[in-house]
Design a protein around this nucleic acid. Structure first.
Length: 210
DNA sequence: ACATTAAGTGATT
DNA sequence: AATCACTTAATGT
């Protein structure tokens, strides 16, 4: 656990804080598809992401989804941070997109550390800022981009997150995350394939141009 | 061989 | 860009 934590966080956290995280944190491995947090669920823990990726999704009354953004190493959900301390319910759903290793931090410590460690304070503030920027980007995408642009952005973003140019997913799943219909996704993907930017097969999309 | 699920497509709104 | 209705293709049993 120490190695995995230091692998990335030793450059941003002071030594004493690292020690506390190791002492009070609970290490856990998560598999693709695991549900971290659901909408309206009370947030009980804050996971610190060591690797892998988590997708954050919003849902409407009909149960239709919309992908907001991904969390990666070095991220923690800043939204959940406040909710956690104030005992509020989650506004979003978090699902493991790529197998993860995380350290769960106890709520009681989060508060202590704020006053105790400068690096923790900075980390939390930065996290808020990063989340805000991601939200703005999500809004921009939604408001200013056409479906074909959104789809292409989705594909390239996912390639980045997965660190793999071959995506194992169905047109239907993509449609759900973009909150559109499968038929539309299939058509636009076909168009991208004809442009030579991707290659399609069943349950698989190869992104050639990214 | 058959059923099930994924993907492709024309026509219409 | 969404929806309908239908076809074709891939895959599991």
């Amino acid at each position: 656990m120490r190695e995995k934590l230091c692998d990335y966080y030793n450059i941003i956290f002071e030594k004493e804080l690292i020690e506390e995280i190791i002492k009070f944190g609970a290490f856990k491995s998560l598999k693709k598809g695991d549900l971290l947090i659901d909408i309206n669920q009370e947030i009980t823990d804050i996971p610190l992401l060591l690797n892998g990726a988590i997708k954050i999704v919003r849902e409407n009354a009909q149960g239709e989804e919309l992908l907001l953004y991904f969390l990666e190493r070095g991220d923690t959900c800043a939204i959940s941070f406040n909710n956690c301390i104030r005992r509020k319910k989650s506004l979003v759903r978090g699902v493991v997109e790529k197998d993860c290793e995380v350290i769960y931090l106890p709520i009681s410590k989060l508060d202590d550390w704020l006053s105790k460690y400068k690096t923790w304070r900075e980390f939390v503030i930065d996290s808020y800022n990063i989340r805000l920027n991601e939200m703005i980007e999500a809004i921009d995408t939604l408001a200013f981009m056409n479906m074909d642009e959104r789809l292409y952005k989705y594909l390239t973003d996912k390639v980045q997150i997965m660190r793999d140019t071959t995506l194992n997913t169905t047109h239907f799943q993509i449609a759900q995350e973009l909150n559109t219909s499968r038929v539309v996704v299939s058509r636009l993907l076909k168009k991208l394939e004809n442009q030579g930017r991707i290659k399609l097969s069943r349950n698989k999309i190869e992104v050639l141009d990214f």
